[in-house]
């Protein structure tokens, strides 16, 4: 196991509010896989990524039964040690690309400072040239055509999509073991989206870089990822290999999600209403107790006021008192 997180709870501390934005969520990743983390906007995907990399602000507290990274519990390490490991092994593409680049430093300088020393071959004297060359190759790799201009720009002079590409470039240059990509193609056009996804796929196969692909776009997960974890309102819903999940979801939410996408639902008649759950995702201030899907779930019964334990069955991990498709 590359990454094994059990019962992660992320709590927001506030004087008027004290809620678990992520409630006992679990996720584990195989080495060298692409793992999709899927959920609606606001379900806590980014929070998970930030909790993992330790970049949450002070108002959040993170607890977990364990957070194993290659057999080492990150939460038990000192902050310094943890940062070292994360710096060495992980890279993250943040969701808000333009806000995640230093506004007062040019793109070129920001790329330069993350180029690892091992990338240089020449002597010290040719470093400058070499740096420039590496940075440019990198920019071309992520599909930036006007790389010269981009190199000299400040983040605020670039579009959101470009910033995102720069973030990606900066993340992959260090060839991390794990790339956490938080909505990496959010601000791009669909053709570039595919290019970027192909790039990540290529790195995954060639350099054995595992990717945690965070997105609300179920389709790209199904296209590129081998495994996935579903999140609803901060609770893990179901996880397992994408193929199994598609074929036989155990959790009502999973099934509903797949049927709501016409492409995967073969028996949708034209012009019929899409199947959706009634109601909407609860706001953080008004989370229901127990299973948070409860008020919207068609199968909810009185046990559901208790948070369901996650159950492992045929390679799936799911959390539901009354699962479907069990027979």
């Amino acid at each position: 196991m590359l990454l094994d997180v059990r019962n992660l709870t992320v709590k927001l501390n506030n004087d008027t509010l004290d809620v678990n934005a992520i409630d006992k969520m679990s996720l584990s990743m195989r080495d060298g896989s692409i793992h999709g983390l899927v959920g609606e906007t606001g379900s806590g995907k980014s929070l998970f990524a930030k909790a993992l990399t330790g970049t949450l602000s002070e108002k959040w507290t993170v607890q977990a039964d364990r957070m194993f990274w290659q057999g080492e519990d990150l939460l038990k390490l000192s902050e310094e040690k943890r940062r070292q490991i994360i710096n060495r092994d992980m890279a993250m593409i943040f969701q808000e690309p333009s806000r995640s680049l230093d506004p007062t430093v040019t793109i070129g300088e920001q790329i330069n400072e993350v180029i690892p020393k091992s990338e240089f071959q020449g002597s010290i004297w040719s470093r400058r040239q070499e740096r420039l060359q590496i940075a440019k190759n990198l920019l071309i790799k992520v599909g930036i055509k006007h790389y010269q201009q981009c190199y000299e720009s400040y983040p605020h002079e670039l579009s959101e999509g470009l910033c995102q590409k720069v973030m990606i470039a900066m993340a992959i240059i260090r060839s991390p073991k794990l790339l956490i990509a938080d909505e990496p193609t959010d601000a791009m056009e669909s053709t570039t989206k595919i290019q970027i996804m192909r790039l990540l796929q290529k790195l995954n196969t060639q350099k054995n870089m595992s990717v945690l692909l965070i997105t609300h776009d179920l389709e790209s997960v199904i296209n590129y990822a081998q495994e996935m974890t579903l999140l609803y309102s901060g609770q893990s819903v179901e996880s397992g290999s994408v193929r199994d999940l598609l074929k036989r979801p155990y959790h009502p939410y999973t099934e509903n999600l797949f049927t709501s996408i016409p492409k995967f639902n073969t028996d949708t008649r034209p012009k019929s209403r899409l199947q959706t759950l009634p109601g909407s995702t609860p706001p953080l201030q008004h989370l229901p107790i127990g299973c948070r899907l409860g008020p919207r779930c068609p199968r909810a019964q009185k046990e559901c006021v208790v948070t369901p334990k996650s159950v492992k069955l045929k390679g799936h991990l799911f959390s539901c008192h009354h699962p479907i498709n069990l027979d």
Partner: peptide, 9 residues
């Protein structure tokens, strides 16, 4: 009201 009402000062 199914949600517990929070009294805000």
């Amino acid at each position: 009201d199914i949600y517990n009402e929070v009294e805000y000062p």
